[in-house]
Design a protein around this nucleic acid. Sequence first.
DNA 1: CAACGGTGTGTACGCTCGTCCACATGCTCG
DNA 2: CGAGCATGTGGACGAGCGTACACACCGTTG
Lengths: 198, 198
Amino acid sequence: MSAQATAEALGRPSAGEPARRARRYDPDRRERLIATALDVIAEHGVEGATHRAIARVADVPLGSTTYHFSSLDELLAAAFTVHGEQVAGALEEWMRAAPDQQAALDALARHLAEDLLGNERTLVLAVELYVAAARRPALRAVTQDWMVRSRRALELHFDPVTARELDALVEGLVLHQFLSTDPMTPEQVHSALLRITR
Amino acid sequence: MSAQATAEALGRPSAGEPARRARRYDPDRRERLIATALDVIAEHGVEGATHRAIARVADVPLGSTTYHFSSLDELLAAAFTVHGEQVAGALEEWMRAAPDQQAALDALARHLAEDLLGNERTLVLAVELYVAAARRPALRAVTQDWMVRSRRALELHFDPVTARELDALVEGLVLHQFLSTDPMTPEQVHSALLRITR
DNA sequence: CAACGGTGTGTACGCTCGTCCACATGCTCG
DNA sequence: CGAGCATGTGGACGAGCGTACACACCGTTG
């Protein structure tokens, strides 16, 4: 195999069977493992996100995953933290760019349609986090941070009560879109948001 | 142990070690397994709902679970079907009893507060189903049925568009309540529902 | 140059899991 | 009464899992 060939090229004795893979220089393997974990979760769910599955996709040995993260929960928490920051950051940008409440509502509708509902990967990751956070304390904090950040962003343009209701409706729409075979159109979504803010 | 004593009382030879437990007459074991499965899911999540855990709590041998249900997914589907029918039935009752739209809204708020948000078990089971349905085809259909039945009940008093938005908001509120450390009060919930229907 | 520590690599251990199977029991119906 | 069958019971099997560990490599530091 190529691993054997590489070993020979590096001058290792080819007599033995070991065929140990050549050591790689891989400075940001940790970050790559986080990104790969998100890919695996999106495709197979948290349930399918095992050390072995992540290591296989990232093309690293199994032991490497436990070297960089002291446990699987820690790896998952790191992954969801990165993802949550990306999504929350996007919402904050939308809200900061909106000049008034009317524009903020349009921006929220677009954020929903484009970043959440329209993107299979983001949608799946959100729901997977919802579920995983229910049982894993390490993920509760990640979810809390995400929720707080989202609400803060909404409060740039809406009073706290309305922001909270919008937040809940958004979560419901995400879940609805995910589960339903007959999802709502962007127009319906926009209309629902409008009703909350009137 | 008592199993041994029972075996001897039944005239089995006590020389051997086997100590096989006496056969029990248990006509509705299948239904009891379903109920037990819901208990286990509520306490340990779908992830913790294994054949062995359910059998232990129901006090039946491991093999009994695979005798009554050809697979674990089938058992979970049966359990969530029963649960979904109970909750959907409760909503239908509320809606049928409401004389007008105003009363229907109050009833929905009470249904939410009492049956869903105020009941830890029901809340957990709903979210667990959301999550499990994402990856298990056998549960998708169960979720669909539940959603359709809920929407039909709401359409007794609200137009289809509003019913749909209410449905999504309810799902969001359930999830919100489940994840948040600082949940909404019944008054806030009622107010949010009112905004949708205006 | 030698010791050392950070990183990469392969493998072993103990455990739980879903599923399957062999056998025991007792009701039903001829 | 006796054969057949639904149900009850215990145990086995192979697979996948998280984690731990021994060893290999290599830049740094004294």
